[in-house]
Amino acid sequence: MASFNLYSRGDRIFGYANAALIGLFVISTLYPFIYLLAVSISSGAAVTSGQVVLFPKDLTLAAYEFVLSDRLFWIAYGNTFIYTFGGTAISLAIMIPGAYALSRPRLRGRKFLNLMVAFTLWFNAGMIPFFLNMRDLGLLDSRFGLIIGFACNAFNVILLRNFFEGVPKSFEEAAKMDGASEFQLLWKVFIPLSKPAIITVGLFCIVSRWNSYFWAMVLLRGEEKIPLQLYLKRIIVDLTANDEFASSLLTNRYSFETVTAAIMIASIIPVLLIYPSIQKYFNKGITLGGVKE
């Protein structure tokens, strides 16, 4: 029997080119992680002399020992957890009802309100007015200030609003016929149906808060409230000028580079752990089967 190929030559070349491009992208994304990991478990001398490119050299956990024994690291880690998870919970608690209200066709002034929300995407007051605003509200050097000041993000509100608008109207009508109140409608119908969007927005919040650095630096004073990223900055900027640390490098197996790599790895781990468990929600398939389109 004559064999034949389902794909033309052009298709196959396109497939190979795609695979090559994706492979390149994967390598360029993955390499920094592998490099950081390799540096963090190599000896300071090996890293400084440029011997670590892909694989670790002179395996040691000295950098981790240094980092994990620092009291401030744990304070910063705890702060980041509060800012990230507390902040995300508060953000969602504010943005979900806001987006739901904006998605309701019968909301008075809906067009204007939506325009005002979108307006902040393109234009905002800027750093100094925001700082002054926070100062006047007494929210400087406060954990709550750092959380509430960035609780609402227009882009996320619009994303949620659009998803709510896409929920088939018959779900809402069926719930109303069943006797659901507006709150029950949001809580029992819209939120479960919008899980993919809410989780996506939640992940955006988590990642942005986990990585937040600039505003923490501007708004916070005491080191008891700093997040991990500020702690990292302190290590990079402050320790280079610290004679005690410099002299300790002579007696220990860690270096400035291995310590910063260890902190970065430690700070990446929680986000890496969260992502795979919520990846499945990154599709809209959950509404499948509920309504016949």
Binding site: S170, F171, E173, D178, G179, Q184, K188, L288, G290, K292
Partner: peptide, 24 residues
């Protein structure tokens, strides 16, 4: 009302769907 497109809540099972009106 019974809707043309069923309007069953996809996140609830059959029992929970039937019970929805009584639960709310």
């Amino acid at each position: 009302m019974v809707f043309q497109n069923y309007a069953l809540y996809p996140h609830l099972n059959v029992a929970e769907n039937i019970a929805f009106g009584l639960r709310v």
